[in-house]
Amino acid sequence: MLHIINKSPLSSVSLDTCLNTAAGGDTLLIEDAVYAATKGNAAEAKLKTAMGKFKLHVLMPDLDARGLGDRLMDGVIAVDYAGFVDLTSNNKTCQSWL
């Protein structure tokens, strides 16, 4: 299952709830959720821990737009919209943690 998150980890519990509840699988950070995958963000440690259970991806155009394209933390895979489509195709279901 693909989990899509679109909220900053410092303003919403969406990322926490997803990582704590979901059984694992692909996770894609889009829109304001991309902040979670930047070096030095308070969510960095959380994402590192989650890497054992989830395969983490970030939508690069959203990260670039926010001026943080050069701060992507290690271990998170950068994808473009085509990669986003592939992630949805390769998983039977997707869930947006709005």
Binding site: M1, T21, A23, G24, G25, T93, Q95, S96, W97
Partner: peptide, 12 residues
């Protein structure tokens, strides 16, 4: 989490 994984369509 397990129940979610068993779904075909998830609307949030």
């Amino acid at each position: 989490g397990k129940l979610m994984d068993e779904q075909d369509v998830v609307l949030s």
